[in-house]
Structures are given as C-alpha cells and as structure tokens.
Amino acid sequence: MKTIFQGKKITGILGVLPQSEIFFEDEVHNYTFPEKQTLRLKKVMGYEKHRIVKNTTASSDLCIFGLNHMLKNGLINKRDIGGIVVVTTTPDHFMPHVSNIIHGECNLNNDVICMDISQGCVGFLYGLIQAFMLLDHIRDKKIIIFNVDTLSKKVSTRDRNSYPLIGDAAGVTVVENDSTIKDIYFNLYNDGSRRETLIIPAGGSRLACSQETAEIKDVDNDGNLRSLDNLKMDGSEVFTFVQTEVPPLIEETLEFAGKNKEHIDWYLFHQPNKFMLKKLAEKLSVPYEKVPMNIVEKFGNSSGASIPINIVHNLGQRVVENQYSCCLSGFGSGLAWGAMIIELGGMNFCEMLISDC
C-alpha cells in the first residue's frame, strides 16, 4: 500500500518510561547459559539496561500519566482533543478498551472518538495513518496517539532470546491539520503467512490461559525457558526478514517521495537491537550517525513505542527548534513492515517523562 497524506503535522511527542531500571548484568543468572557467554551479548546486541513496569502497572497507567502531564502543563487543552488512538498488544483488559479507560480517567468530553488498534512493531505508523484519516473529519481538533506496550509481563525472564531486549514504555503523540506542511509519503506491507515468527501462543480465544499453558519449559530445546503464555520469537527469522524486506521498502518509499538517501537527515527506525540496526544501515549504505540505534541499550525495545522514544531521546529539543527530513520505519510482528517520509520539526514539545505509577 502506498499513499500520500497532505496537511498533517506532528506537533508534540512525549515519551513515558517506568521508574524501574534493570541492568543486563543483574539478570545473567536467570538464564541456563554460561554467564561469560551471555555477557558477550552486551556489546554485540547493545544490551545494557531496560525499563520494566511494576506488577501493578497496566498499559493505561503510562498513558494517563503522560496525558495528565500534558493537560496540567498546558501542552494541550481538553477542548482541543477530538480523538484518541491507542496502539498496543498489551491492553489492560479484553474489555473495556484502553482508549476508553484513558478517556474516563482524564475526564475527556463525550464527543471524543476512542479507538484501539492491536499492533506491535509497526504500531507508530499504524497510529499515524489512522490519526491522519480521522483529521480529515475532525478538522479543527487534534488527535492523540498512544503507543504503549508492557510486554515485560508477557516475556519469560528466563528466555535469553527475548527478555534482555524487552522494555516497557509509552509514546504520546499529538497530530493536527496544518495546510503549510509538506506531503507525507507512506508505504506498508504485510505477510500473515509468517505470523508465527513472533507469537504469544496462549491467552486469546484460540488457546485460553491455564495451568498447562503457564508451565515453564524448554519449548524450543535451545536453553531458553518459557511457557505458552509467553512471547515466542524466532530471532534468526526476524533478522532475515528485516535484512531482506526493509532495505527494498526504504528504497521504494524514497523513490515514491522523489528523494535520494542523502536528502534524509534522520532514519528513525524501530529498535530491535543494535546489531540488527547496524546491519540494516550497512545494507542501505546509510551512515551510522544518521541511524540512531541506542534505544535498546538505554531503555529496551518497547515495540510500537520505540520510534517515538527514539525521536524524544535522540532529537528532543532539536525538533522543537529545527526542521528535519526523516524516514520512519517499523518492522516486526504480523509480519508487517512500513516506512514513512515525513518532515519533523517546529513541534511544541518533545520530551521524556519518568512515570510515578
């Protein structure tokens, strides 16, 4: 799918992180592998520390903390909010939707549209395209996108394949209409035949959670211990997928936008790990310094929130004071992969918060 959005602007991004910060070295004893072997991953994959929510913290809590901060500090006014779009794979409940929880807790107006989208690694792009379409009908209002995942609750702490890279976070993004903005070019692909590359087998209507699904065992016979309630990731397949599908996606999207690689100031990608991003930059022949790849080592991979966390951490005040030509790209669960060429800059705010919940 290729399309162009006109007159749409991101006017603010807030990153929300949980308080708890856990270092990689403190968790090496969790795994069945020799400690020395596990520690080699720190440099190669970019594992240093990650942010993990408390057991009592739900996905909505990070979103509510962020929106309340925005309301309290005048970053947005309630009367200007026309809709909220929540993109998550870890809702508080099957019902009600996270968007309705946020709506009720923040006492928003009854005419505010509330919408949840179940999407992971490409979630920021999905949230943007949905918000852009809503803006065609809510012309004088703003849409807030909440990308949030608390996947640490669904990953086995004894799975070295997945747990060291997982981080919890929320990205809160404000979008609105602006007729002076350059066109936004979007490109998206999906391949459901490879859906089981990233899967949580139990917990839905296909296989309900039970004592049996909660049993921890070596389900893939390679030393990573997890249950059917936990995330299962085929790391080698994910790597091959990213290196095979993403470079042509970026090339195609640039051509669609009429731009060369040199025209792009920043390549702001989803953050699986440093090793994968280095290889991706090399395959694209893009300088490392244009591809921030430090989010996993600082905070962990927060799924759909990783791109807004990337923007806030690596650009921050710069996208308030300046304008940049950017290529955003997400890739992962689905399998799905997408890219967007967009001007980022002149924002009202771009900052990071540490949640107290």
Rank of each mutant, 00 (worst) to 15 (best):
I199Q: 12
S210W: 08
P272Y: 05
L39A: 00
I311D: 01
T173R: 04
S303F: 10
K259V: 02
F94L: 09
T197C: 12
S20G: 04
T88F: 03
F349V: 03
F94W: 08
G332R: 05
V246R: 04
R158V: 05
I295D: 02
A305L: 09
F299A: 05
L135P: 07
E25T: 15
A208Y: 10
E215M: 10
T90Q: 09
G332Q: 03
C350R: 03
T90P: 08
E262G: 06
D111C: 09
K298F: 00
Q119M: 14
T197E: 09
V172S: 09
H263V: 01
F241V: 00
L188Q: 14
I4K: 08
L62C: 08
G104A: 08
T180H: 02
E351R: 07
E343D: 15
Q130D: 06
S205L: 07
G46W: 11
I143F: 04
S118L: 12
K153Y: 10
D111P: 07
T150E: 13
M70C: 15
N109M: 12
D191N: 15
N147H: 08
C121P: 06
P96V: 09
N187R: 03
N273V: 06
R51F: 13
K182A: 01
V286A: 00
I184S: 00
G338Q: 03
L14Q: 04
M115V: 12
P272G: 03
N107Y: 07
I22K: 12
L280F: 14
N260L: 13
V112R: 02
Y288F: 15
P287D: 10
K43C: 01
D80R: 11
G167N: 13
K290A: 03
V246F: 12
K42G: 15
S302L: 03
I250V: 15
D159C: 11
E289A: 09
L39D: 04
T253V: 07
S20M: 07
Y185W: 05
K290G: 04
Y31T: 01
R226E: 00
L135M: 06
L108M: 14
I4N: 10
W266H: 00
Y185F: 14
E105T: 13
I84D: 05
M340I: 04
F186G: 02
L231W: 03
G304K: 04
T3A: 03
R158I: 07
Y126S: 14
V242T: 14
G346Q: 10
I250A: 09
V296E: 13
T56L: 06
C327W: 01
R139G: 04
H313R: 13
D92M: 09
F5L: 07
T173F: 05
Q317L: 09
T32E: 04
G345A: 01
F146Y: 14
K142A: 07
G345T: 00
A58S: 11
E255A: 14
W337K: 05
V98R: 08
I309K: 05
V291C: 15
Q271C: 11
Q243C: 06
I102N: 05
I113L: 12
G120D: 15
E343H: 04
I311R: 00
Q317H: 13
N73V: 02
M133F: 04
K217N: 06
A131S: 12
